[in-house]
Simulated assay, not measured.
Amino acid sequence: MFPMIRTYQPADRYQVATLIGNCYARSYEACLVEALRENGDVAAEYVWDSDDGPDGHICMARHLYPDRWFILATVAVRPEKQGAGIGSDLVRAAVEAARQQDASAVTVLGHARYYQRFGFTRTAAERLETPFSLENTLMYPIRIETAGIEAELVYPPAYSRL
């Protein structure tokens, strides 16, 4: 089988939780994804599938406000497969899913050096009010008028544990 990106299926739950747990130093990210699923806040979720099962996973959720804004919730790639482009392909797939769902913008809490290559910037997010570190908040403006907009980001309840 050729590796491919496909939509997450409930049967992937255990393998994806294990994958996420192996990629992050803390266990919260797997709990975050599970809570987003349970609350119906997931906008798109994909796995990078290979013969060995999921080598990568991405989850994108909906902000409660502004309307039609999404959050790149988690990106996880098996440690031994990192650097092979799997994470990049998953981020591109998630951003394309946001476009297909007529999203206005996608935000992410993460490392600027990694996400800037996809068009996420701190500059686009600099006037956003967020309960999290503005330094780690980046935005990808799908609709150009959202770049630099003043808005309060309201996250789903699953984020209250961060």
Rank of each mutant, 00 (worst) to 15 (best):
A84W: 08
A105I: 05
E45I: 02
Q82I: 03
L72H: 09
V33E: 10
V47T: 03
I58C: 13
I58T: 09
G53Y: 01
E34I: 07
Y46P: 05
A94M: 12
R37Y: 10
A97F: 03
V75Q: 09
T107M: 01
S27L: 03
D102W: 04
D41R: 10
I58G: 07
N39W: 08
A103S: 08
G83P: 05
G53W: 00
F70M: 13
G85M: 00
V106Q: 03
E29G: 11
E29C: 07
D55I: 01
S88K: 14
V47D: 05
L32N: 08
P79A: 15
V75D: 12
F70A: 15
I71N: 08
A43Y: 04
V47G: 01
A97R: 04
D49M: 13
R68H: 12
A76C: 06
I71K: 01
Y46T: 00
H57P: 04
V33A: 15
S27Q: 06
D89M: 15
S50Q: 11
W69P: 02
S104K: 12
E34C: 14
A94K: 09
L64F: 11
H57D: 10
R78M: 12
D41E: 15
S104E: 15
Y115W: 05
A84L: 10
L90N: 06
D102T: 10
D55Q: 13
R117S: 12
Q101T: 04
Y114S: 05
P54D: 08
V95P: 05
Y28K: 09
D51M: 13
A73W: 06
H57M: 06
T107Y: 01
R78Y: 02
G85C: 02
R117Q: 14
V106F: 01
A103I: 06
Y46W: 10
S50F: 03
L32A: 06
S27T: 10
V108Y: 00
R62V: 09
A84E: 14
L36Y: 04
P66E: 04
Q100I: 01
P66D: 06
C59G: 09
T107E: 01
V106Y: 00
E38N: 13
C59R: 09
R37A: 14
D51T: 12
Y65L: 11
E80W: 08
G56T: 02
V108P: 01
D49T: 05
H57W: 06
R37G: 07
W69N: 08
T107P: 00
S104G: 13
R113V: 09
S88A: 14
A105N: 03
G56Y: 02
A84S: 11
A103M: 02
P79I: 11
E80M: 05
A61Q: 04
A61H: 00
T107L: 01
A61F: 03
K81F: 05
E45Q: 15
A97T: 04
G87S: 02
V77R: 04
H63P: 01
L36V: 01
E38C: 12
F70N: 14
Y115K: 03
F70K: 11
S27W: 00
V42Q: 05
D41S: 13
A30Y: 03
C59S: 14
L109A: 05
A94H: 10
V95A: 06
Q82P: 07
A103C: 10
H111M: 11
M60D: 09
R62L: 12
A61D: 14
D67W: 06
N39E: 11
